[in-house]
């Protein structure tokens, strides 16, 4: 596999010379973005199916066998719908907002490693880059809410801004714990730090268990997923920030939300669940390619997302703020100190 990649790179170098570098990067980007888009499409189907089964329904089963063509039908429908621009809206920002939401969701994938040295950019400050990119996603939502010139959209945007700023702090501190333990901000090195003879017991979710939970929950909040979907809140503010959007513009918000979900799943797997490492370093487990372990862990986290949505009622806005500021932030602050002290003792095994 690695040899094949090297041969391709060699061939390209010989063929195109200096122009090869952008071409190769473009190929790498496509190799990541196309599967993400396909995963997004089928994640929507999986969501409807899983929630259907949880609620003792069948879910979509009309288009194709077992409803497998449903996402394609939905996509085609959205493509052909008209994008209605409200008359009092700010046209430029109204159109730019969905793009601004989707771009950071995809850009963050640049530093995600899918295996040993398998990422578009093996950046040293990878963790920081991820945090920066995920924090940019809120602009699309705020701008969409403001540019729509609609009360409901504006309320949704305001809620989203407050929510994301509060949960980002807890999320950041949870990641500080990870980088303290791994002593690196490179995501590849973080996975390496979890490699040990103990297999699954060497992963960071054991010493950092509270941080694992905080990150997962803050991740659900950052992606505006139920039970933290106050920005949409269909029973209170109709559809929140994207109430005025239709057709493909709406689909972009949808894509961004699911791409962000997959991103949070990937990051949780990489930082807490050992990334591409097998749970036990013995025969049947370590024969499976690392990519499949990573995808398996991501699927598990994504299933949790769907499970949450089917199980919990939506948080009320003030309860959401309380959870972020009064529970998560003190907890993470304490845990940073605990981990710092713990690492100095011989009891630290990771």
């Amino acid at each position: 596999m690695i040899e094949l990649l090297h041969t391709i790179q060699q061939m390209g170098q010989n063929l195109l010379g200096a122009a090869w570098m952008p071409v190769w990067t473009a190929v790498k980007i496509l190799v990541i973005v196309v599967p993400i888009m396909l995963t997004v499409a089928y994640l929507t189907l999986a969501e409807r199916k899983v929630i259907g089964f949880i609620q003792v329904r069948i879910g979509p089963n009309r288009v194709g066998p077992y409803g497998l063509l449903q996402p394609i039908a939905d996509g085609v429908k959205l493509l052909f719908k008209e994008i209605i621009i409200p008359s009092g809206s700010n046209k430029f920002l109204f159109v730019a907002a969905p793009i601004l939401t989707l771009t950071p969701a995809l850009a963050a994938w640049a530093v995600v490693p899918f295996g040993f040295e398998m990422s578009v950019s093996n950046a040293n400050a990878g963790l920081l880059y991820i945090l920066a990119m995920t924090s940019l996603g809120v602009y699309g939502i705020i701008i969409a809410g403001w540019a729509s010139n609609s009360k409901y959209a504006f309320l949704g945007a305001m809620r989203s801004a407050a929510q994301i700023v509060s949960y980002e702090i807890a999320m950041g501190f949870a990641l500080v714990c990870v980088l303290m333990v791994a002593q690196s901000m490179n995501l590849g090195d973080i996975v390496h730090g979890q490699q040990s003879k103990a297999g699954l017991f060497g992963w960071y979710f054991i010493p950092l268990f509270p941080m694992f939970l905080v990150y997962l929950i803050a991740g659900v909040a950052e992606t505006n997923r139920a039970p933290f979907d106050v920005a949409e809140g269909e029973s209170e503010i109709v559809a929140g920030f994207h109430v005025e959007y239709s057709g493909m513009a709406f689909a972009l918000f949808f894509l961004a939300e699911y791409a962000n979900m997959i991103l949070v799943a990937a990051l949780t797997s990489i930082m807490f669940l050992g990334g591409w490492l097998p749970p036990f370093n013995i025969a049947p487990f370590n024969l499976v390619p690392g990519l499949f372990w990573l995808l398996g862990k991501m699927s598990f986290v994504l299933f949790l997302f769907l499970w949450f949505r089917a199980t919990f009622p939506r948080y009320r806005y003030d309860q959401l703020m309380r959870l972020g500021w009064k529970v998560f932030i003190p907890l993470t602050l304490v845990w940073v100190a605990v981990v710092g002290a713990w690492m100095q003792t011989p009891l630290w095994l990771w």
């Binding site: 924090s135 940019l136 809120v138 602009y139 705020i142 305001m158 801004a161 994301i164 700023v165 980002e168």
Partner: peptide, 9 residues
């Protein structure tokens, strides 16, 4: 990611 979001807010 943080300051300007609050500013815009």
């Amino acid at each position: 990611g943080a300051v300007m979001v609050l500013f815009l807010f």
